[in-house]
Amino acid sequence: MRDVIKLFLIVTIFSAVSGWALATVRNLTGERIEIQQLTYVKGPALKEILAGSSNDPITDRFKVPDGKKQIDVFTGVFEGKKNTVAFEVSGKGYGGNIGIMVAFNIEKDELAGIGVTTHSETPGLGARAKTEPSFRAQFKGVSINKPVKVRPEGGDIDALSGATVTSKGVCAGVNDSIEIYKRLKIEILKNIKG
């Protein structure tokens, strides 16, 4: 019986020390990991949709609470004014979730552009949502007053040929983001002014 307790104690001590070590390393690297993820996962999409902004959108970010979630909102400065915000949403694609970074022009209340951050779509078909700028360019300047739809469903967006599911998924993601934008606009404006 004493043996069992000794074994039990030793494994417990091992686990405790290991847990402590992991917590320490996690605390030390947490901030850097967040910056790295922003730079490498969201950075390229942000650079594309906020091209020409005079600030660094990754540094000028703030968090806005949306229900239980916290949304990272990135700001872009154009012509000296903080008039563009971007945040990430996800849409359901063919191979899983598609991460979409959507930018809004707050003065005109329209889409300033979208970019794809992460996806697992088929290369050569759905993956063109990320590789073909012409598909994404269609979202630029679109009004937020009516939902975005692909052409067969009565909208104005030309779907990627052979990748209707992906195109619809992107549209659905964009529509979600419009909802979020409408819901959080007051909060976002407060943060930009403050």
């Binding site: 070590a21 390393v25 996690r26 690297t29 850097r32 990991i33 790295q36 993820q37 730079t39 490498y40």
Partner: peptide, 12 residues
């Protein structure tokens, strides 16, 4: 896990 965290921080 430590290596994984360090890699995320320094060699993403």
């Amino acid at each position: 896990t430590i290596v994984e965290l360090l890699m995320q921080a320094y060699a993403f």
